[in-house]
Design a protein around this nucleic acid. Structure first.
Lengths: 112, 112
DNA sequence: TATATTAATCGTAAATTTACGATATACGAA
DNA sequence: TTCGTATATCGTAAATTTACGATTAATATA
């Protein structure tokens, strides 16, 4: 990519894009849903619920954690993951801002 | 990546992830906002509004088009882009479904 | 203490993404 | 018809992502 231009954009757009990107893989959408429904929170259980190897799931969990959307707590041999309410709330808030804008586009368009 | 496992997931999760991935870059968030606000719709104007080369912007427009979120109409020498209301509506609907789930997680968590 | 279990990390391969200059194409205007 | 303008595509390079087996580290348990 030669040079990363991502930081030349608006902070708001960067943050939203980062979090959307974190949810830009079906495995990570599935993980976040499992956590929300409290169907699983231990890494091993999450792995069992997905068609992926343990190392791969660990990697996806890391991606969600890097984006701030989840937290992990070590409990003995296991790690328990859960949603980071604050960040999730921010994401929802920011997306709602975007979707308000997108929906307000009911103004008949000049060109297309 | 050796083998693509993305299609082993639920259709809903795949579709939502695909569209969120399409918004997983600040340039593409910025583009969608420009279109919604009707601040620009011609490729050249969009390029001028972004800190990226024309070829790169064209690529980002293609990504949004592939995800179905925008449509492009050739108008003589220029191309006019606009939101695909239907797909945008679906994205908002699906994201709202996910966010309902995420917000319902107010149930005190067993583990973390 | 030795052994099994859990999960993170390492190393690696393949694919995809990001970015751009150069080029091609296609249209409008002179 | 020739010239300029707009945009898509090609070629390419670098970075990142996805996926996994193997290993490591840390904690239980026997």
């Amino acid at each position: 990519m030669a040079l990363n231009k991502s930081d030349l954009f608006e902070d708001n757009d960067i943050k939203l894009a980062e979090r959307m990107k974190a949810l830009g893989h079906p495995a990570r959408v599935a993980i976040i849903k499992l956590l929300a429904q409290q169907k699983a929170c231990i890494c091993g259980d999450i792995t069992n619920a997905l068609p992926l190897a343990q190392a791969t799931v660990s990697q996806h969990l890391k991606a969600l954690k890097n984006a701030g959307l989840i937290k992990g707590e070590i409990e003995g041999v296991r790690t328990c993951y859960c949603l980071n309410e604050a960040a999730v709330g921010e994401l929802i808030h920011d997306f709602n801002g975007l979707s308000d804008l997108l929906e307000s586009n009911k103004i008949p368009n000049k060109c297309c």
